[in-house]
Computed example of a mutant assay.
Amino acid sequence: MKKLYLSALAVLMTGAIMTGCAKSESPAPAAASAASEATEEAANPPSSVTITHTLGTAEVPVNPKRVAVLDYSILETIDFLGAAPEIIVPKTHLPEYLKKYKDDSYADAGSLVEPDVEAINEFKPDLIIIGGRQAGLYEEFSKIAPTIYTSVEYTDFWNEFERVNLMTAEIFDKKQEAESKIDQLKTQAEEIHKAAEESGKKALVVQTNDGKISAYGPGSRFGIIHGVLGITPVDDTIEVSKHGMEIGFEYIAEKNPDLIFVVDRTTVVGGSDVATKTLDNDLVNNTTAAKDGKIIYLNPATWYLSGYGLESVPMMLTEVSDALK
């Protein structure tokens, strides 16, 4: 009898243990389900993505087949990422480093300032990408196709640079590639910042426009030189405005910068007085920058026409880095 009782007790204990094991393993089906969903999502990626930008929100197809790109910075990022949609692009003043898009295999959208809306409509794009120069046409373009706005706020350049490039990369399913390049550029920028601090040099950034001169300081369209790369401005009271603060040669002589960075708009849009001619006078030639050979003529194609893509920013960082050597 005692033996029978012990056998029954053993059976009951075994059952309890088995029940406990079953309860402790109960999350396994949920984990398996989550893994299954992740695998399914990888096998069947979303066909569209919701993009929120400064001017609104748009439902955008992933890897769109036909794209109107009216922002050279984004064009170069698409190029860098290896995405290959059919493209219509403004060919007037197209930068040299993007010259492949001058080929007849790419449709012409006119110019950045005056895009050919009719040609874009006839192209029947799946997506339209616009920059600051076309902001006023946002509503009109949105009637043609989903439209996103990719211009940046220069007062927060680096975060804005990351935002628009990762947004573009998400559309073309290339986010990992973009993140890797941005991390690389961030490291390079930090190295330049350190070199700038150690140099102790002060700089003036100017844009010349057919004989006229404007100064740009921190927070401006060329403010990356000061804010991100750490070169001290020779004048920290330069007012931030779209076209810079108008200055004369006497101002340059008075401030006497160690470095003068020059963006020559004339060579891009046309005119008779290029920067080298404009700045060739005694007041400028007697500055420390001129005497030390540190008047740096930046590439206006990257600094003026684009300036925040994954191909232009590396070139811009290299130019500033070289100026500090």
Rank of each mutant, 00 (worst) to 15 (best):
K124Q: 09
P125H: 03
D126Y: 05
L127Q: 04
I130P: 10
I130C: 03
I130Q: 02
G132I: 05
R133I: 01
Q134V: 07
A135D: 05
A135V: 04
L137E: 07
L137N: 06
E139H: 02
F141D: 03
A145M: 04
A145T: 00
A145G: 05
A145N: 06
T147A: 00
Y149V: 02
Y149E: 03
S151H: 10
S151F: 03
E153H: 07
E153K: 07
Y154I: 05
T155L: 05
N159F: 08
F161V: 09
E162A: 08
E162S: 03
R163P: 04
V164A: 06
T168D: 04
A169D: 04
A169Q: 06
I171T: 00
D173G: 08
K175I: 07
E177G: 09
A178K: 02
S180Q: 14
S180L: 13
I182F: 02
D183V: 09
Q184F: 12
T187E: 11
T187V: 11
A189D: 09
A189M: 14
E190V: 08
E191D: 13
E191C: 11
I192P: 12
H193C: 01
K194V: 11
K194I: 13
E198Q: 15
L204Q: 13
L204N: 12
V205L: 13
V205P: 10
V205S: 10
V206Q: 05
T208D: 12
D210G: 10
D210N: 15
G211P: 12
G211I: 10
I213K: 09
Y216S: 04
G217W: 00
